[in-house]
Amino acid sequence: MMDEHYNFGFLDERTKKMIRRAMLKAVAIPGYQVPFGSREMPFAYGWGTGGVQVTASIIGRDDVLKVIDQGADDTTNAVNIRRFFARTTGVPTTEKTAEATIIQTRHRIPEAALTEAQTIVYQVPMPEPLFRLEPRRLETITMHALGEYGLMNVKLYEDIAQLGAISKTYDYPVLVNERYLTSPSPIPKFDNPKMHMNPALQLFGAGREKRIYAIPPYTSVRSLDFEDHPFEVQRWEHACALCGAAESFLDEMIVDDEGSRLFVCSDSDFCSGRREAGHVGTQQAVQMPDALARAAVEGAR
C-alpha cells in the first residue's frame, strides 16, 4: 500500500519533470552526460541516490519494479530501495527478472536477456570515465566534445606494460554509439557485452555527481581495447555449486580457513530459476588449499 503522506514516487512533480527532461536529452545523445539538479534523498550518497531519482521519475502505476544489488535481490541496498518504492508508490515489486518492467541495479546486469518492454536503471558512483586520468573537469568536457579519447588507451597501454594484461575488471570503459566514451557504472566487464545492442532502455543516474546518461535500445556499445590485446570477459574453472550453471557470473565465497571456496551465481533470481527447473550443482565448496600460496607467488612475480 502506498503511504498517502508522500507524493507518488517521493519526488515532487516539478522535480520529476526536470529529471525527465534531462533523460530525454540523454537518450537523444547516447552516452553523453547530462547535468541535472540532483535532490537530497533519504539515502546516503553511495547508496544509489542517482538511480533512485531516475526510477522515481519514470515509474508509473502499471510498472513492476525489481531492485538488485550485486545481482542479488536480498541484499541490504536492494531490500531498502524496493521497500522505499513500495511505500512511496505502492507499485508491485518482484524478484523475477522476466516480470519486471523497471529494474534498478547496482553492479550487475541480470543474466536473463532483457526485452524492449523493460528499462534498466544503473546506480553510478562516478560517471566520468576520464576522472582518474584528467583531473580538470573543463578539460574532460572538451575531450568529450572533440572525441579525443587517446588518453583512455594510454591507461590501457600502461596496464599491459606493467601487468601484462588490461587490469580493469569492472567499470570497464566503453564507447557508446561509436561516439561518447562512457562509464558502464561498476558492473563487471563480464556484463559489458550485454549492453551492446540491448533491446532494453538503459538509464544511468549519478546522484552525487549530478549527471544522467543513457544508452537507448539497440545502440552499439564497444569496450575499448588494443588490436593485439582484444577485450575479453572473465571465465571461471568452476560451475555454480547450487545450480550448476557454467555461463553465469560467479561469486567466490571463502567458507573456512583452509582455503575452501564456494562458487555460486551472483544473480540470485537466475540461480533459483535454474534450481526450480531441476538443475543441480555439486552442492559443495571447492578445495583450493594452495590458492593463497599461489596468489602470493604470483603477487611476488
Binding site: 587517446g150 588518453l151 606494460a161 588494443f226
Partner: peptide, 26 residues
C-alpha cells in the same frame, strides 16, 4: 604525464591519433 610510464608517454600522441596496436606502439 608523470603517472604513466615512459613508453606510454611516447605512445600518447599516436594513441590520440587512433593507433590501437600495442605491439607497434611499443
Amino acid at each position: 604525464r608523470m603517472n604513466v610510464s615512459g613508453g606510454a608517454n611516447i605512445g600518447e600522441r599516436m594513441m590520440a591519433l587512433g593507433a590501437r596496436h600495442y605491439g607497434k606502439l611499443r
